[in-house]
Design a protein around this nucleic acid. Structure first.
Lengths: 337, 337
DNA sequence: TTAAATGATGTAACCGGTTTCATTAGGGCT
DNA sequence: AGCCCTAATGAAACCGGTTACATCATTTAA
């Protein structure tokens, strides 16, 4: 391997000068600069990044913890993170935790060993193991999309989930649909609670309440949406609309409803959340809340970058706004008064 | 930061002994070992991975180049890579190239600067820039899913695309469908050519040929599938079945057909490729070729691991087998003779 | 004319592990 | 007792950059 010493010999200068030529050319006289560049060229020299990192004590890499890269929403968030990271001169280390706490903790350790300069967690858990907590307190950390439960205190970039759920519910109410059902995600998830709260906000405003039986839990998978819809159909009184807490579950639910011969939205309306690309291509197309996934990722990375530079964040809690996307799955004609 | 020297002081031994205790405990006497572990504990010592990497000359990281992480197929492949990498003690660096050659080359450079010990390319291009080629020849490299065009010579892990396309086409022919159309991907892609060849194999076997007009090019996006279907419908004679080279385009095409009031599969059958999760939830559900995406990823990572260890590969060309998944989009009842 | 400031470059320490080689102590054998 | 072998440990080099500090030449200011 060609090292800086070889190049310095070739150019007849010291290693310091070679280093300077490459990093701060303005500190070197023009003709020395030229001689060095010449030597770099002819030797095919590439500064060893490992040595640079070691020397600077930085890895120039951030670790992204995600429960599942194959999830269409998360993968978009990661895309956003990646773009911003690239722009900041950072590489992205991927940590697919598969929802496993131990894998998460194992990955998180990379923050303590300087393998990653910062962490972005897309799940609702503080990733460090209890015994690592104290050391971990100095590791730049940002939480995105999901909010960490517990006693918070971590920077978080998320959607206005409550507001979004409220707006979506209001949309359903505006269609004169009064008996609403909801397919939630895992109960431990703070965003599920936020969205539920938003839904109740809107119902309350209309003088309605949510029947406990009409709240069914899923796990954000299509299959679970399908199963949840099945359970909802067994209730004595059929809901007029189902609000699903992500698009995948809505897609699963829609399939179940169609199999039962129900027409969407005439017999029952459906709404999702996220606005994944497929939502526009379902039959019927899916009304949903658009989450600016890439934006969320970029914003999280930007915040992390601040932290890594040692700049305190202007605000710990960054909330991005949603957009209601009305499509055919709630296309009901009402006579507006 | 706690360093190995601090720990060595604490334990009253040399740094060498601390290092040995952590990496080769059997070289250290039991009571020294205990004393060192004690010191490690009380100091909260974590060996700096940056220093380890530098010292060993390895980054213990592999770079994955992907045109788009948000693609459901690629993200599954990445999942497979990640799992296997984790098992091999390697981290995964994500390089989303967005199809841009320059981003690709910029990332590939990480292989030359020791930031990554190996590369996996999921696109059909050799990622190094022309001036880097010579140096790059020593960088462990594996190509997966897509095959690099040119003068090959790189290890590749891919599906038996030709066989799969042949089987799928045969399935359509068995349903007594004779006028077939196809929505392809970008013409430069070798897998597109392979699949086209497989399709022609089957047609030839049935004494049929593919009408040049019935071959329409897409770009693997849903929108392009929609548009391509539109074009196919404008042909004088309507095809009886459309073979789409991925599921997304099939989904786009299906949407177009339904908008035109055509029934699937009665009026026109549809088949996709990949078997992404959504294929089972479309209306009607989609007949497709199942690609073992995670498998492809794992296999690619395993091959790369071999190369990084310096073990030559038993075979340069690894082909995984497909599985035909018949669903409703080709559910046509035929009277079997 | 001389002191001080500036610019260009070199020397060598440094980052935090790993590892080679040397040294020492202890055990077994003749 | 004397020798050899092995196990345990330490001293120090090393990995390849970066950078603080020293040095020297040249210019500027007084």
């Amino acid at each position: 391997m060609t090292t800086i010493r070889i190049v310095s010999k070739l150019a007849g200068v010291s290693t310091a000068t070679v280093s300077r030529t490459l990093k701060n050319p303005e500190l070197v006289s023009p003709d020395t600069r030229q001689r060095v560049m010449q030597a770099v060229q002819s030797a095919g020299y590439r500064p060893n990044q490992l040595a640079r990192n070691f020397s600077s004590g930085k890895a120039y890499a951030v670790l992204v913890l995600v429960p599942n890269v194959a999830n269409p929403f998360f993968s978009r968030v990661i895309r956003g993170i990646e773009q911003e990271a690239q722009a900041c001169g950072y590489a992205v280390l991927l940590g697919d935790t598969q929802g496993s706490v131990s894998r998460e903790q194992e990955y998180a350790r990379m923050g303590l060993t300087s393998q990653a300069d910062g962490l972005i967690q897309l799940d609702s858990r503080y990733p460090f193991s209890p015994e690592d907590r104290e050391l971990a307190s100095t590791v730049p950390f940002v939480n995105a999309c999901e909010r960490i439960d517990e006693h918070a205190g971590y920077p978080v970039v998320e959607l206005d989930n409550r507001g979004a759920a409220r707006a979506l519910t209001q949309h359903l109410l505006d269609l004169n649909l009064k008996r609403l059902a909801v397919i939630t995600g895992p109960a431990r998830s703070p965003i599920v609670r936020d969205r539920l709260a938003g839904m109740k906000d809107a119902l309350l405003g209309a003088g309605l309440t949510l029947d406990a039986q009409a709240v069914v839990q899923g796990d954000f998978s299509m299959q679970s949406g399908h199963d949840a819809a099945e359970r909802l159909l067994q209730l004595p009184e059929r809901a007029q609309a189902i609000f699903c807490m992500n698009d995948e579950m809505a897609i699963g639910a829609m399939r179940c409803l169609r199999q039962r011969g129900l027409r969407i939205p005439q017999d029952i309306a459906i709404a999702g959340f996220d606005n994944i690309e497929f939502a526009a291509y379902t039959e019927p197309s899916l009304t949903t809340i658009d989450q600016p996934a890439e934006q969320l990722g970029r914003q999280a990375m930007r915040a992390l970058y601040q932290l890594m530079k040692g700049v305190p964040l202007a605000q710990q809690h960054m909330m991005l706004s949603y957009r209601l996307v009305v499509r055919d799955s709630t296309a009901i004609i009402t006579d507006k008064k």
